[in-house]
Design a protein around this nucleic acid. Structure first.
Lengths: 232, 232
DNA sequence: ACCTGAACACCGTTCAAGT
DNA sequence: ACCTGAACACCGTTCAAGT
C-alpha cells in the first residue's frame, strides 16, 4: 500500500498546515512502496543531490526520523530504488528471440535505465542479491536464457558479470560531457590522440556513447556466444 | 615540491603543539603535489570515508580553509588523486609487444589500480581530459598503439571507451563480497540462477571477479582486434 | 598571496517521549 | 509499533582578519 493512501489522498509534498501530533498514528503513514515512490519522484525532480533523508521525509509529510522505522539507513532507500528500476529492464527477448537478440535488447535496456541513475551503480555492484528480489528475478530469467542457448552452466555467471560490468561502465559514459576528450592546450603534446578524437567526431551517427557501447557489446556477444555448445 | 618539505621535515600528521599564527607564511605551506600525497596517504590509511577536507587539513597541519587556496572544491582533490593513479597504469606493452598483449597488460593493470579506488570512478568517467595531464598522456600512448596496430583512426576512441567502460565496471566487481550471489531464501524461486552460481563456485581457479574479467576482456580483444586493417 | 579562526547551512542518524 | 521533536556529531565551504 503506497503512503499516499494513508495521507487521505493529499498529493505528496502538499502537506497541510497543521502537523501530525506525536505518538503512533492509528494507521501507519509509511511503508516501503511509498518510500520508494517518493524517492523516485524526488530523484526525477531534483536529481540525486536532492535525495536527502530530510527531503524524502518532507515529500512524505513526516519527520525525518520516522523513516528509520522502515529503513536502517539511507543506503536501504537506494536499494529499494535500485530494485524497482531493475524491474523496468527488458528481459522479454529471452525465450522467444535468438540468444544474440535477447542479450542485445537486454543490454541496451539495462544501460539506458541506469544511465539516468549512475549514483546507484556503486550500490548495485556490491549488492547481495538476497536483498533485491526484482534483481534476483532478472538474473533468473537471464540465466535460463543462457542455459537454453547452450551455455555451459559453469560459465553463465561469469558471462553475465562480464556483460554487467560493461553495461555499468557504459552507463557512466552516457552522462559524460560532449567535450570530455578535448585536449585543449595539450593538443600539440598528444598528436595521435587528438587526431583520433577529431576523426571520430567526423562520423555523425548518434551520440558517441552509443557508438562505443555498440562496438563493445557486439564484441562481447560474439566472444561470449562462442562459448555455447552445439545444440540439436 | 611536496608539502612535507615546508613543514621542516616533520612527518605529516605529527603536528607540533603550537599552531601556526595567522597571516601569510613566508614560504607557502601547501602545494598540489603535497595535497595529492597527503590525500593518498589518508586514503591508504582510512579509506575514502576518511578522506574529508578536515582530515586532509590535519594531515597537512593546516586549517581546513587553507586548502581552498589551492583547490576550488573537494572534487579537485579527487581529480589530483585520479591523475596520479593513472600515471601508475602500465602502458609499457604498447610499442614493443603485439597489440593483443599490450591491451591485455594495460587493461589488467588499469583495473587493478582502480579496484582499490572505486570512489574515483564516477569522477573519472565524467572528467574532461584537459584537467588531467597524466590521463591524457595515457590516452596518447594507447591511441598510438592502436594506430600502429592498424586500427582505423575513426574507431580508436570508441574502442578505447568500450574497453574503459568494461574496466571501470570490472573494478567495482573486485570489491564485491564473496557471497553477493547467494540467493538465500529465494533459492527455490530461482532454480536456474542458483544452479549456475553453485556450478561456478565448483571451479576453484582464483577470484570469481578475475574469471569474469578475463572472459570479457578476451572477447573484447578478439572482437575489437577484428577492426584492424591488414598490414604489411 | 596564503594562512587562521569563526561561522554557515547543511547532512545522516539517534533517542526519549508520546499514543 | 510507529510517529514527533530535539539533539548530536559530523560535512564542505565561505569569509573577514592577519601578515
Amino acid at each position: 500500500m503506497p503512503a499516499v493512501s494513508a495521507t487521505e489522498g493529499r498529493p505528496p509534498g502538499s502537506a497541510g498546515t497543521q502537523r501530525r501530533r506525536a505518538g503512533r498514528p492509528s494507521a501507519a503513514v509509511l511503508d516501503k512502496a511509498g518510500i520508494t515512490a517518493a524517492a523516485l519522484e524526488l530523484i526525477n525532480r531534483k536529481g540525486y543531490d536532492g535525495l536527502t533523508m530530510a527531503a524524502l521525509a518532507k515529500e512524505l509529510d513526516v519527520a525525518p526520523s520516522a523513516l528509520y522505522n522502515h529503513v536502517a539507513a539511507k543506503r536501504d532507500v537506494l536499494l529499494l530504488v535500485e530494485d524497482h528500476l531493475t524491474s523496468l529492464v527488458d528481459v522479454s527477448g529471452f525465450g522467444p528471440a535468438p540468444w544474440e537478440d535477447a542479450v542485445r535488447g537486454w543490454a541496451w535496456s539495462y544501460r539506458n535505465v541506469f544511465a539516468e541513475h549512475t549514483p546507484l551503480i556503486p550500490v548495485i555492484a556490491v549488492l547481495p542479491v538476497t536483498d533485491a528480489p526484482q534483481t534476483l528475478a532478472m538474473y533468473e530469467t537471464v540465466s535460463k536464457g543462457f542455459l537454453d542457448a547452450g551455455f555451459p552452466q559453469e560459465r553463465i555467471v561469469s558471462s553475465i558479470v562480464a556483460l554487467e560490468s560493461f553495461i555499468f561502465g557504459s552507463a557512466y559514459d552516457v552522462t559524460a560531457p560532449a567535450d570530455i576528450f578535448e585536449s585543449g592546450s595539450m593538443a600539440e603534446a598528444t598528436p595521435h590522440f587528438t587526431a583520433a578524437v577529431r576523426s571520430a567526431a567526423g562520423q555523425v551517427d548518434g551520440p558517441p556513447a552509443d557508438a562505443a557501447f555498440s562496438l563493445g557489446l557486439e564484441a562481447l556477444i560474439a566472444g561470449l556466444g562462442a562459448l555455447r555448445e552445439q545444440r540439436a
